[in-house]
């Protein structure tokens, strides 16, 4: 039992069975979040370090809550207050953290592969909380958890992912997780936002939102990353909103019981109409709630066998 791995770096490396184990464990742990006393002693005495080199409130808070609900101690490191500004490398920073007996390091970094690099250098478990445009595995896990919770299954569902696929680690991890679990995945975006050779991932590419939405069970809206607009991917935000905003009219093209997801933060009126974001179809806040359960499950599973996680050996 348990995940036979030290780290969680990518969805690409996980088998469907491993994903299912994480989902089942998260399902059992969800109950803890509903209690008056939201704490269990499973990771008592373990130390979790949040090492975030990119701004994040949602993900960092979610990891922190997850660790605290399992009774682990949590330290938050951010680059502005750390020695990184003095020129220390990522690996040296992490080795120092490890020397303080950290059991789990949660890393967000702007460079693809940063988590993997770190995992090879330290004995602590490393959880990738987003590495550049590469992967954001815990977001994908909480998304498939939410889909399974709302729809009872993932296999056989039609999932449409809308937005900047090329620059979205959320999209990459989700495509991998959804296809591994047997969902049918469509992606839709302007051609400048679709990477080359995406068909090899087993997804169907659309350029028109209306066509892609027909018959959808799940719609995942990605955030339009305004910080990247200088790169001439789009004529204007208004044009994008006209063509790719999920409006109530467009939502009607999907199945009547379709759910709408978004990893946050929302650009209301850009990729999603406020009335859709606030509708009964939207499960955006359920995603946030489930994120804590999924991250608890991961921390529990990675803390795994006592032998491996004991750093003094």
């Amino acid at each position: 039992m348990g995940l036979q791995r030290k780290d969680l770096l990518t969805i690409a490396a996980l088998t469907a069975d491993e994903i299912q184990l994480i989902l089942t464990t998260a399902e059992s742990l969800k109950e803890v979040g509903g209690r008056d006393i939201k704490k269990v002693p499973a990771l008592r005495g373990k130390t979790v370090v949040n090492l975030f080199f990119e701004p994040s409130t949602r993900t960092r808070t979610s990891f922190e809550l997850a660790a605290k609900r399992l009774s682990a101690d949590v330290i938050n490191f951010s680059p502005s207050t750390s020695s990184m500004v003095k020129g220390e490398t990522l690996v040296d920073t992490a080795r120092n953290i490890e020397a303080m007996q950290a059991d789990i390091i949660v890393l967000r970094h702007s460079s693809p592969g940063a988590a993997e690099n770190l995992a090879r250098s330290v004995r602590s478990s490393v959880i990738n909380a987003g590495d550049g445009w590469h992967e954001h595995p815990t977001q994908a896990l909480l998304d498939v958890f939410t889909i399974k919770e709302k729809k009872g299954r993932v296999a056989g569902l039609l999932v449409v992912i809308v937005g900047d696929i090329a620059h979205s680690r959320v999209a990459h991890s989700n495509i991998l997780a959804l296809t591994k679990l047997g969902a049918e995945v469509r992606v839709v975006a302007p051609p400048t936002m679709i990477p080359l050779a995406l068909e090899h991932f087993g997804v169907t590419v659309f350029y028109h939102l209306d066509e892609a939405l027909i018959g959808a069970d799940v719609i995942i809206m990605l955030r339009l990353q305004r910080e990247r607009l200088g790169k001439a991917l789009l004529p204007s935000i208004r044009e994008y909103a006209n063509l790719y905003c999920l409006t109530p009219e467009r939502l009607k093209l999907a199945k009547a019981d379709a759910i709408v997801m978004h990893p946050g933060p929302l650009n209301r009126g850009v990729e999603i109409a406020p009335s859709v974001a606030d509708s009964a179809a939207a499960v955006i806040l359920d995603q946030v709630t489930n994120g804590v359960s999924v991250r608890m499950a991961l921390m529990y599973l990675l803390s795994g066998s006592g032998e491996r996680s004991t750093l003094n050996e």
Partner: peptide
């Protein structure tokens, strides 16, 4: 939990 070799499943 921290000394077992096999990790018990959470139900």
């Amino acid at each position: 939990l921290s000394i077992r070799k096999d990790q018990p499943e959470i139900r």
